[in-house]
Structure formats: structure tokens, C-alpha cells
Design a protein around this nucleic acid. Structure first.
Lengths: 216, 216
DNA sequence: GTCAATGATCGTGTATACAAGAATAGCATT
DNA sequence: AATGCTATTCTTGTATACACGATCATTGAC
């Protein structure tokens, strides 16, 4: 638990939203949350204000807070931006790669290979996340890394859904291989291009996303 | 004034920070702010929590809030990301350009031409902002537009400093011309490339930035 | 029977009071 | 004289109380 209750609540509620415990459109009652977490309304309000500032919920004056529903189209737009940022991270990584980052990428890539070979979708989901985080870090831009992590967090539930699509696991891993090659070869433009394709949602994958979102 | 005091205060304090009325590192005393704005501490706290969530200030437990100082390096990183996002916006604009967006770009571009010709740096600063916003909107991605506007806001003071550099005004406008041409020609890749170059900070322009930041 | 208006109830918005921790200053001791 | 410890004060963190607005239900009129 964090040292101040407001921040702790923010993380707690944020996780609840991102793990779909609070569904989009659902109203978040301050007193209910307060009693549930055993605190007063004040820190709850502070947490909600922060989540509103981040854009996870919307506080309508005198009408309470509701969880924002991004909707398929907006999620698509978020993936579009995510692809761009990851592309930048990849190109920077290719240019600035140092020993530690190289090892981190190699290690996480190896773990992805194992879970992909085992066909373990849940394990791959986690390892894949670590792989991408290793690339963010390798870009050596604190701000970019933060932006990537933040967007990644918000898109996490949808990434998980994507992996459920048939054959996506092995395809994803093959793309990883090419990305690693490009980064290690110092080929920034290629790394950027590959990551954009890897993260972005094109063509039929958009309908896959919509379908899996509807199936929730 | 917004309908709820907390949000109004957030905007107010945010503007004060971005216009350098509160300098980086400065402590923001809750009671001082409360009396200054004629409200109680509660909405002040809510505003500060939100600014903390956005990343403009830092609240250290039991030690109060201070304005974050990005520092030259981090500002550089922010411009790097901004360049990438604007590049994406430009490429989308080239692909999806409709009549309204085309007219908006043409109009703001024309105003830039006037203020550039007049050598009016302040007017150009404003018109340039509108020009870029027109491109964000032309991309037809709500999420991307929001991200661009948010980053633009935070970089606003530094953009202003940049324009003070000698000859930057006419150079900037020439770059605008090429960007408009690329977008109107439907050449997304070219628009992306040009915007990246236009917004990003390369080579000596970084030292210009550092110098102007130190001169504040 | 349906629609509108008014009142009651519930929930948010702001203020204030109280508690706990951190910083600073003063005093004592080495 | 310098350093460390303690006490006081100031500021933040949390709770509670009160007020205003919104929504919903009930009643009355058309």
C-alpha cells in the first residue's frame, strides 16, 4: 500500500477499471467506494479526480463519475498512436542500443519463444509485455518510455483479447524475431516499420478486435 | 469559469505553471492558493491531485506540491515524441483530407504567411499554433488530436522561445508550405517526414533551446 | 389514462475541524 | 563553537458536516 490513501485508491480503482471489474458506463458511487475500501469520501474523491484527469473516467458535475467506454473506433485510434510511439522507441533502440538493453531484449525474447512454442497464450501475454517494455527502455528516452507504458496499460485488456485470435501467437513471435534482428542490426527505419506493423491494427484484425470486444 | 471549482482551479493553476508564473521547483502552498483564489483547501487539493496525475507537478507525501522542472533533456524528449505524433497526424491528414479540413488548413496557412511577412513574431506564434491544430483535426483521429493538443500545451512555452531564434520565422513558414503541398497532394509519407523535421529539434537547434531556456 | 409539476430523497460539491508527520529553531551538551 | 536532540509550529492528510443540485416518484389536473 502506498503511503497516501488517495494514491493507493487511484491505483486500486484504476486496476479495477482496466481489469474490467468496473465496466464501461458503470457509475462509481463515492460513498459505496468509501465504505468498500474502509476510508472516508475525501480520498475517494481525490482518486476519482485523478482518474478523470488521466481520462479513465468522466466526472459530470453533480451527477457523479462513470467509467469511460472508449468504443471500438477509439480503441483503434489508440492502437494507431501506440504503433507510432513503439515505432519511435524501436528506431531509437536501434540507434542507441547498449549492452544492458540488448541483454534485456534477448532475455525477454527468449521467454516469448518458449511460451509461444508451448502455445501458452497467458504466459505469452505476460512475456510479450515484458518484451515490449524492454524495447521502450532501450530507446533511452524517459518521456517516451512513460508515454508508451501509460498507453500500454490502457490498451492491456485489448491486447489480451487480440492474442486469442487464431494463429496470432506464432505470427506475433515471428514478427518479434524480425524486430529484434532490425534493432540489433542498428536498422532504425526497419525497426520502426516492423513495430508499426506489429502493434497497429490493419484490415481484418480490426474486425477481430471489434468481435472480441463485443464478446466480452 | 467552469461549473465546478476544482476543475476551474486546475485550469487556472495549470495556466499559471505553463506561463511560468509558478516557476519549476516552486512550492505550491495549499492554504496560500486557497486564500488567493478565495476558496477552501478542498478544491485546491483536488486541483493539485489532478495536476499531479497529469504530471505537471509532484506531490510528495506530507511535504507538499512542487512544480516539476522538465529540464532541457526531457523537453528535447518531449519534442521528439511531439514530432512523431504530428508526423502521424500529417500522414493521416494527407489520406483523409476532406473539404472542411482543407479549408481550415488553407486559412490558417494564409494567416501564417501574413504574420511571417510582417515579421510579427507574436502573431506568427499564435497563427502557427492554429495551423498545427488544423492539421491535428484533419487527421480525423480524436484520440491522436487530444494527445497532440495536450503535448502542444505543455510544450507551448518552449515553442515560443524557439521562434525568437534568428530567421526561424521565415524558415518555419517555408516548411509549412512544403507540408501543405504534401498533405494536399495526398502524399502521407512525405507529410509525415516533413512534419517530423519541422517539429523535431535537430543539431544546433537543441543548443538554441537550451540557451533560451537558461535565459528565462 | 397520460402528462406535468412539485416535493422528497439521494448524491455530489465545498467547507471546516482535527490528527499526524515533517521542518525548523532553540537549547543543551560535548 | 559545533552538533545533536527535543519541542513547537506549520502544513498536509483524512474525516465529517452541511448545502445545493439533480433525479425520481407521486399526486393532481386535463
Amino acid at each position: 500500500m502506498s503511503e497516501n490513501v488517495g494514491r493507493w485508491l487511484r491505483d486500486e480503482i484504476e486496476n479495477s477499471i482496466l481489469s474490467n471489474e468496473f465496466s464501461p458506463g458503470e457509475r462509481l458511487d463515492e460513498t459505496v467506494l468509501a465504505t468498500r475500501f474502509g476510508v472516508s469520501r475525501t480520498p475517494v474523491r481525490e482518486a476519482l479526480m485523478q482518474l478523470d484527469a488521466i481520462g479513465l473516467i468522466e466526472i459530470r458535475p453533480r451527477r457523479g463519475a462513470i467509467v469511460i467506454d472508449p468504443g471500438p473506433h477509439r480503441v483503434y485510434e489508440m492502437f494507431e498512436v501506440m504503433a507510432e510511439l513503439e515505432g519511435l522507441a524501436g528506431s531509437l533502440a536501434a540507434r542507441r542500443l547498449d549492452k544492458a538493453s540488448r541483454e534485456a531484449i534477448t532475455a525477454t525474447h527468449a521467454r516469448c519463444e518458449q511460451s509461444a512454442a508451448a502455445g501458452d497464450s497467458d504466459a505469452y501475454y505476460y512475456d510479450n509485455e515484458e518484451f515490449h517494455k524492454a524495447i521502450y527502455a532501450a530507446g533511452r528516452s524517459d518521456f517516451l518510455e512513460e508515454q508508451c507504458l501509460q498507453l500500454h496499460r490502457r490498451l492491456r485488456p485489448y491486447r489480451r483479447l487480440q492474442l486469442r485470435v487464431r494463429n496470432r501467437l506464432s505470427t506475433s513471435f515471428l514478427e518479434h524475431c524480425a524486430i529484434v534482428d532490425a534493432i540489433f542490426a542498428g536498422n532504425g527505419d526497419e525497426a520502426r516499420r516492423l513495430l508499426r506493423g506489429h502493434v497497429g491494427i490493419q484490415g481484418e484484425r480490426f474486425s477481430d478486435l471489434v468481435a472480441s470486444m463485443a464478446a466480452r
